[in-house]
Deep mutational scan, measured.
Amino acid sequence: KLETFPLDVLVNTAAEDLPRGVDPSRKENHLSDEDFKAVFGMTRSAFANLPLWKQQNLKKEKGLF
């Protein structure tokens, strides 16, 4: 399991300012399950079932792209 970080560490943070080991294209993977659901309004599995373009739009909207 990946290390999780608080939302404010990941949202609207440039790649070079992210904690070590965080993939800038997969910031959402480093949210706790609770934060993930609070941000996206759905579970990880529901998010994973969305088309890629919709996932990317949601990530942009939430500052996690």
Rank of each mutant, 00 (worst) to 15 (best):
P24V: 07
E28S: 01
D35Y: 02
F40P: 00
T43H: 09
A46V: 13
L31H: 00
D8C: 11
T4S: 08
S32F: 03
V11D: 03
K62H: 13
F5V: 05
D8N: 14
D35W: 01
L10D: 03
L31F: 02
M42F: 07
L18E: 04
T43Q: 09
L58Q: 04
S25P: 02
A15Q: 08
F65P: 04
R44M: 06
A48S: 12
L64K: 01
A38M: 13
L58V: 05
H30W: 11
D8K: 10
R20C: 15
P24S: 07
R26H: 15
V11L: 12
D17L: 06
T43D: 15
H30L: 05
L10N: 02
F5C: 04
A48Q: 13
K60Y: 11
F47W: 08
R26Q: 11
E3I: 10
L18N: 04
Q56W: 09
P24M: 06
D33T: 06
K54Y: 12
K59A: 04
V22D: 05
S25C: 15
L7H: 04
E34V: 10
Q55N: 00
A14G: 07
F47H: 00
L7N: 02
L64F: 07
A48R: 10
Q56K: 11
K62M: 08
L2Q: 13
P19I: 02
P6V: 04
P6G: 06
D35V: 08
K54L: 15
G21H: 08
T43C: 09
T13A: 10
F65V: 09
K54I: 14
L31N: 01
F36Q: 00
L64E: 02
E3K: 07
A48L: 09
L2R: 10
F40H: 00
V39L: 10
F65K: 06
F36S: 00
N49C: 12
D17R: 04
R20P: 15
A48I: 08
D33S: 09
A38V: 11
K59F: 03
L58A: 06
K62S: 10
L18D: 05
E3D: 12
K59D: 00
K1A: 13
R20E: 15
L7K: 05
P24K: 06
N12E: 07
D35F: 01
P19W: 01
L64S: 02
G41E: 15
D33K: 05
E34L: 09
V9H: 05
L2Y: 15
K62A: 15
P24F: 04
D33G: 06
A38L: 15
A46C: 10
E3P: 15
F36M: 02
L50E: 13
D35C: 06
K27Q: 04
E61N: 09
K60R: 09
P51W: 01
S45N: 13
L50Y: 05
K60L: 11
F5W: 13
D35L: 05
M42W: 02
A38Q: 14
D33I: 06
S25E: 15
N57Y: 13
W53V: 10
N49G: 13
A15P: 14
T13D: 06
K37F: 15
A46I: 10
K1E: 10
D33N: 09
T4V: 13
F47T: 07
E3F: 09
S32D: 07
A15W: 12
Q55H: 00
N49P: 01
S32T: 14
V22F: 02
F36L: 03
K37H: 15
T43S: 13
L50K: 03
E34G: 10
K59N: 02
F65W: 14
Q55Y: 01
D33F: 05
P6H: 04
S32I: 05
K60T: 11
E34F: 10
H30R: 03
H30Y: 14
N29M: 15
F40Y: 01
R26I: 05
K37C: 13
P19R: 01
L18F: 07
F47E: 00
P6L: 04
V39F: 05
S45C: 12
G21E: 11
L10G: 03
G41N: 14
E28H: 03
G21P: 06
D33A: 08
L7T: 03
N57G: 12
L50C: 04
G21W: 08
L7P: 06
N57Q: 12
L2H: 14
H30C: 04
A38I: 12
E34R: 10
L7V: 09
K37T: 14
N57S: 12
E16L: 07
A48P: 00
V9Y: 15
R26N: 11
A14N: 13
M42Y: 06
G21Q: 08
P19N: 02
R20W: 15
E16P: 09
V11S: 07
K37R: 14
L10H: 06
L50P: 00
L58W: 05
E16N: 09
L52D: 12
K62C: 10
Q56Y: 08
F47R: 00
A15R: 09
K62W: 07
K62T: 09
T13W: 09
M42L: 08
D17P: 02
P24R: 03
L31I: 08
P19A: 01
R44E: 03
E34I: 10
V11T: 09
L31T: 01
P51K: 05
V22A: 04
S45F: 13
S32K: 07
F47Y: 08
L64M: 07
M42G: 00
L31K: 00
K59I: 04
G41Y: 07
L52H: 12
P51F: 01
Q55M: 05
G41L: 11
R44A: 06
P6E: 06
V9G: 03
L2P: 15
A15V: 14
D8E: 14
E61V: 09
K54R: 12
E61W: 07
F65S: 15
F40S: 00
F36V: 01
S45A: 13
P19D: 05
V9L: 14
D17I: 01
P6D: 07
L50R: 00
D8Q: 12
K62Q: 12
L52F: 11
V22W: 03
K27V: 15
N29H: 10
P24T: 04
T4L: 11
F5L: 07
Q56E: 12
V39E: 03
E3V: 11
E34A: 13
L58R: 03
R20D: 15
L64I: 05
E34W: 08
E34D: 11
E28Q: 02
F5Y: 15
A15F: 10
K37L: 14
G21D: 09
Q55W: 00
W53S: 10
K60V: 14
E16S: 09
F5G: 02
V39K: 01
D17A: 07
R26D: 04
L31S: 00
F47S: 00
V22N: 04
V22Q: 04
F5T: 02
A38D: 13
D33E: 12
A38R: 13
K59P: 00
L10Y: 02
E61C: 10
L18C: 07
R44H: 07
L2E: 08
F65C: 14
P6Q: 05
W53D: 12
F47A: 00
P19F: 02
F65I: 09
